[in-house]
Design a protein around this nucleic acid. Structure first.
Lengths: 174, 174
DNA sequence: GATAATTGTAAGTGATTACTCACTTTGTTA
DNA sequence: TAACAAAGTGAGTAATCACTTACAATTATC
């Protein structure tokens, strides 16, 4: 017994990342998932809905992960967890990040998701609490830097992430 | 007298960034550029060739910019120029960076361009020269961080780039 | 075990795609 | 100005696109 809907989701995720959303036809998704083309539209109303489903799945997981970081009030532990959350991306979630980055560069109306605003506010609050004079800019810098590193990781451009993680933590005295 | 080839290049750059490469038809490019569709294929053999042309144009400019940074041998000035090169992106080049980011997430066979390898080697060499113990990781960290910031800038996510620039320079004692 | 909903298929649909081709217009040079 | 090349056009092309529809198989409910 196979969950065909999940099969479609997995196949489309892989194809969207490999070939790009607009360069992936519903025909090839069906082929790769081993189902008929019509079934895609039975489970997901349109190709766009399918994409939204994939993005939502990832966003839900991120919300959980962010909540775990934000709930920490002890500064040192907070920042340690924060940094770790950018480095400890399970490899089976690489595709989500790559898809997100792709769609972000295609959809002009892209707005930060809830988990992202949530996280950024949390970082800001913690820098302020710790008494940094320019806490807004410190928060911005750390967030953008970590985002750059995460992009590098999921694109396979960073060979020694562990060494990088230690270095980041050292710079923030963690 | 108008250079139609340049018109096509400009229109397609804008459209590729706004709607995505695979979601932009040659028909709409022709419309936007005010030329016939056939002319696109007279000047550029295919839609892919047109894309390559746009990416090459940007890469050529980057090569120049990188050479200017690399040629600097005084550490403090080198790093100052390096940081500035990531912050001082003329707004009419934002599209190039956004296009590059989009294509990078679609083309799996993407490899770092010459200017990029050139720049990274330069940063590495300078960190080594300055006697950093973990110069490879320092170079990696700085490069990925700056890349993340550049992405943020061209996506309009950073409201006070100047403050961020000063903060980065301060951290590296420039 | 009959009924009804759900899940699945295969063969369509009109619209759109990148690209071609036969042709005309414009520019250059002897 | 004749001759040739380069630039430009617009109506084609076959292929592919996302999506629909009529129907069959499976599963759930009583």
């Amino acid at each position: 017994m196979i969950d065909r809907k999940e099969k479609i989701a997995q196949a489309s995720m892989q194809l969207f990342v490999e070939r790009g959303f607009h360069n992936t036809s519903t025909r090839i998704i069906a082929e790769e998932a081993g189902v008929s083309e019509g079934l895609i539209f039975r489970h997901f109303r349109s190709k766009d809905t399918l994409l939204d489903f994939l993005l939502q799945q990832g966003a839900d997981e991120m919300y959980q992960a962010v909540a775990e970081v934000i709930s920490e009030h002890e500064p040192k532990v907070f920042f340690s967890k924060l940094v770790d959350s950018f480095f400890d991306i399970p490899s089976d979630r690489f595709d989500y990040w790559r898809l997100r980055s792709q769609i972000q560069s295609i959809r002009t109306e892209w707005e930060p998701e809830e988990w992202e605003r949530y996280l950024r506010e949390g970082v800001l609050r913690m820098f302020k609490k710790m008494g940094f004079s320019k806490f807004e800019h410190e928060a911005e810098l750390l967030y953008q830097s970590l985002s750059g590193i995460r992009d590098g990781i999921v694109r396979g451009q960073i060979y020694e992430p562990e060494a990088l993680r230690e270095l980041v933590k050292k710079k923030y005295r963690l």
